[in-house]
Amino acid sequence: MAQVGIAPSDVPVIPRGVRLHFDKVRDLWVLLAPERTINLDPVGLAILREIDGTATLDAITEVLAAKYDAPAPQITADVRDFLAGLMERRILEVRT
């Protein structure tokens, strides 16, 4: 379980210096951050694409629950863990 918490009403924000990038050579999307990258799987990419600096965690999970065939509580838990993992690595911030 991730140690960094993110509340349902928190707004995740991709900070300056971090951006989504399509790696043509590997044919995959990555999250580019200073001195490192995160290789993204399709679900990780879908989560990050919902982050626009205004959507709350609740809103993001609601959109994803409508698109994906999985129980909403599972999607909420997985999204929270994923974003908390990015926060621990300091490549995601939240506004409360």
Partner: peptide
């Protein structure tokens, strides 16, 4: 679409 738990694969 099918949901799979997203994994953070971090990468000199």
């Amino acid at each position: 679409m099918a949901w799979t738990k997203p994994v953070i694969r971090e990468i000199g």
